[in-house]
Design a protein around this nucleic acid. Structure first.
Lengths: 132, 132
DNA sequence: GTCTGTGCAAATTGTTTGCACGCAA
DNA sequence: TTGCGTGCAAACAATTTGCACAGAC
């Protein structure tokens, strides 16, 4: 990491963490992951930067699971699956999100549609076998 | 209201409130609406009964908007629109939710899909004209 | 010197819980 | 007399905010 980025080291680390991971972490999960490399990082810094990224359009909030907001750095609309057994949030990359949906929503509702989200809930493969 | 229901008067009122309104209220919104008829109702009672309804499959949580969970007594999967300007949550009844999606999700993911939710965000008609 | 990013602790907010009371079976 | 629904207040958990400090410009 170059010297010039020292000022933004933690901010960059938070964004990089979101871009690197695919588990759609909560603020606390990001905090826990970064604590290894930045032992003095504060949870408030994570929250502050997540809010900033969101308002900049760098990060989306995917859902709130078990009371905690979950974040995603993949901005292209895609399909998610949330496991009610283990609170995992994952992508369903095989599934296409029909482009026509957004236009159709805008036409039938008269609203200005900015985002579209298709989310399934249920039990993931692991929880499926554990729970009867 | 018959005498027999006195025991469940508030519980019934909470459910009826959800079934009657279409604004997908939060616990606090339900509380405020019921306070007119039941001035001594408690927010804890609303939360307790909402949790009960949810576990009984009588009520779904649609989304959490501005930190507060929003509820819906319409259990059939349907499409929602959330306005980021005024935090309104509304139905898009004109839009069909393709039945095939759930099966496709189950097939491609290997998960056990229990629920499907299609949600658009943006600005409603009123906020659209207010915000530039 | 000014501005910005941050740690820390306190505050805020949505939600849950423990306890006591009152009514129904 | 046992159980359930409730109000109230306290507890909790996720998130936000005020303040002081350090480093970048």
């Amino acid at each position: 990491m170059e010297a010039a980025t020292k000022q933004f080291r933690k901010r960059n680390a938070i964004l990089a963490c979101l871009q690197r991971t695919h588990n759609h972490p909560s603020a606390e999960m990001v905090y826990d992951m970064l604590r290894q490399e930045y032992p003095d990082i504060s949870l408030a810094t994570v929250y502050r930067n997540l809010a900033r990224f969101k308002s900049q359009g760098l990060v989306n909030s995917v859902a709130t699971v078990g009371g905690a907001e979950r974040f995603d750095a993949v901005m292209a609309p895609h399909v998610h699956f949330i496991c009610t057994g283990c609170d995992a949030v994952m992508d369903l990359p095989q599934m296409e999100l029909p482009q026509s949906l957004r236009a159709e929503a805008e036409r039938t509702s008269g609203c200005c549609v900015q985002d579209c989200r298709l989310t399934f809930t249920g039990l993931c493969e692991r929880c499926k076998t554990r729970n009867p």
